[in-house]
Write a protein that binds this DNA or RNA. Structure first.
Length: 274
DNA sequence: AGGATAGCCTGCGGGC
DNA sequence: TGCCCGCAGGCTATCC
């Protein structure tokens, strides 16, 4: 479940391996992980990677010449893993669910995704801003004013708005629950019943929860790791996510789970009454 | 037309 | 011990 902090950790860990280097070749083992209509089979082979950018949960490998971008969505279980060539030579069988591989002189970049909710999109670099403009602002920079203007007239539950990547990009189920708890807001509250200060407090909580999670390298529940295989340390700081039935870390009441927008949701009935 | 819902897909853990 | 079933959820398509 890579959300913004996990994708940012992957971006940072990939940077020293990829920047300034060109893949000698790219191997695609499953055609159907290429997303989008008529995606050209152009996986940056031979092009020097000049930038790694992230918007929300998406990461882009960027080449300046030719001006191309390779967009990676990790979905639920996708991983980008760096393997030094020397190690890869000694490992006989390829990892299961390996769908794409970029061969560099000094190592391999692997795209692995058991559940295949993730995928790759190739596009002209000049089309990347427009592609990302379809998403809301990156959640690390979200403001209360934007949330209110974008979602404040909706009758949807406020948590459903947080999960909507067109409203803001990067929040998934873990950080939605954590931010709502931090802001003391009931995830079921109708967005149109949020006050100006509620939106401010929620935006502040989204930014602060994500910033701490980035600093901790993200959350590892089962199999998330950055490109070098390091797990995230934010899991131990989860205050409500997956803690239903346990005492609330703020008031000691029992945390309750419910289903909201098809997602398991945990909240404190006392701290997040309204 | 906005909002709720089904479906995709595999690994794991609980229960029998 | 081993099998089966339910659950995990990011995103798109479809329905109401």
């Amino acid at each position: 479940m890579p959300e913004l902090p996990e994708v940012e950790s992957i971006r940072r860990s990939l940077r020293p391996h990829l920047l300034g280097h060109a893949p000698l070749r790219a191997d695609l083992f499953r055609r159907d992980i290429l997303l989008g209509p008529d995606s050209p089979l152009d996986l940056l082979a031979g092009a020097v990677i000049t930038q790694l950018q992230r918007h929300g949960k998406q990461i882009a490998l960027i080449a300046a010449d030719p001006r191309r971008a390779l967009l990676v969505h990790l979905g639920m279980t996708g991983r980008l893993t760096w393997t030094p060539t020397a190690l890869d030579v000694t490992s006989d069988p390829p990892p299961p669910h390996l769908h794409a591989r970029w061969v560099f002189p000094h190592g391999h970049l692997l795209f692995i995704d058991p559940r295949r909710f993730g995928g790759l999109t190739t596009l002209a670099l000049d089309d990347l801003p427009q592609r990302w403009a379809a998403l809301g602002p990156d959640a690390l920079t979200i403001t209360g004013d934007h949330l209110r203007q974008c979602a404040g007239h909706s009758r949807r539950a406020v948590k459903a708005c947080l999960l909507d990547q067109r409203v803001l990009a990067g929040v998934g189920n873990i950080y939605a629950d954590e931010a709502l708890f931090e802001a003391r807001i009931n995830p079921r509250r109708s967005a149109c019943r949020m006050s100006h200060t509620d939106w401010q407090r929620l935006a502040d909580s989204v930014r602060s929860v994500l910033a701490v999670a980035v600093a901790e390298g993200g959350s590892t529940l089962r199999d998330y790791a950055d490109a070098d295989g390091r797990p995230g340390a934010f899991t131990r700081l989860h205050r409500v996510y997956a803690r239903g039935g346990q005492p609330c870390p703020r008031c000691g009441g029992i945390l309750r789970t419910l289903t909201l927008a098809q997602r398991t949701t945990t909240r404190c009935p006392r701290c997040q009454r309204h």
